[in-house]
Amino acid sequence: MTEYTYAKAAVPAGSLPNDWSAYTKEILRSGPGGKAPDAVVSVMQTPYNIGLFTALKRAGYTGVLSDPTDYDPGLLAKDATRQALDGVVVLLQFQPFESDSPAMRQFKADIRKTAGKEVPLSMHMLTGYMSADLFLSLAAKAGKDLTVESFQKAANGFSDTGTLVGDRSEPKGQKESFGCGALVRLTGGRYEVAVPFRCYPPIPFR
């Protein structure tokens, strides 16, 4: 059974704290008996995560650090960022770039062809790529005489499997995630797949 020992939106959204000690002290005493929790999951963006994770490590925290935002090969270009995020486990809702599936190989080839060279990959690239892929898949199902009505009809009963974001289904996907994910860990300056990408029963949005 999972116990949430600390769940506060306490960090100011407008600016990075100069001193994280107020937050780290509370977090590190939030577990049973005033001890540190087994894992700290941050839902903040990278600059905030760097500050929080660095402060937790300096305070001696050795548990699991995780977030859903810090997966970007571009982050590895800076020594300070690599050190701050070293060991952090990141949740992805798409196949990691480190996977060797046919779909990932095709994605990399398409990006390389479009850019005319090797370029750093990012979540934004994959989001745009898969948005275009979904549009083209729906348009293909609608047929040659594409209209707003035929497109909407195609979207009202569309599903496919094995994509970079898992098993897609519409219109269910407008209210539910596709329920697929993977975990990667930043180790020694590079991302490694910690838990391979797979699909699970979807959880409805609330």
Rank of each mutant, 00 (worst) to 15 (best):
L52V: 08
G189D: 02
D110E: 15
R105A: 12
P202M: 01
S137C: 00
A55V: 11
L186N: 07
E118A: 14
T161F: 12
V148E: 14
R190W: 00
N156K: 09
E149K: 14
Q152I: 14
R168C: 03
F197L: 06
D167H: 02
K35H: 05
A59F: 10
A77M: 01
R198E: 05
K8L: 14
Y129S: 04
G188V: 00
F53L: 12
D167S: 15
S30Y: 03
T81V: 14
P201R: 05
G63F: 03
K175H: 14
F158M: 14
V148L: 13
K153V: 06
K153C: 00
L126E: 09
M44T: 08
V89W: 12
G14Y: 01
E192S: 13
P196Q: 05
P12I: 01
L28H: 02
V40M: 06
S66T: 06
G74K: 07
L126Q: 13
G143W: 03
Q106P: 10
Y61M: 06
K35W: 01
R168N: 11
K35P: 08
L138Y: 07
V195H: 10
F107H: 07
A9Q: 13
G60Y: 01
M123Q: 13
L183G: 09
S169G: 11
P37Y: 02
R105L: 13
T127L: 04
E98S: 14
Y191H: 07
A22W: 01
P171W: 06
A103S: 03
R190Y: 02
D79F: 04
P202D: 09
L121P: 05
A139P: 11
K175Y: 10
T114V: 12
T147Q: 12
V89L: 05
K57V: 08
T147P: 14
N49E: 06
K108D: 01
D133T: 10
A109K: 11
E98H: 09
L76Q: 08
A13T: 10
T114G: 09
F53T: 04
V119H: 04
V41E: 01
L75Q: 01
V88K: 03
T187Y: 11
P202S: 11
Y71Q: 03
R58S: 14
N156F: 02
A103E: 15
M123R: 14
T2R: 10
K57M: 04
R82G: 00
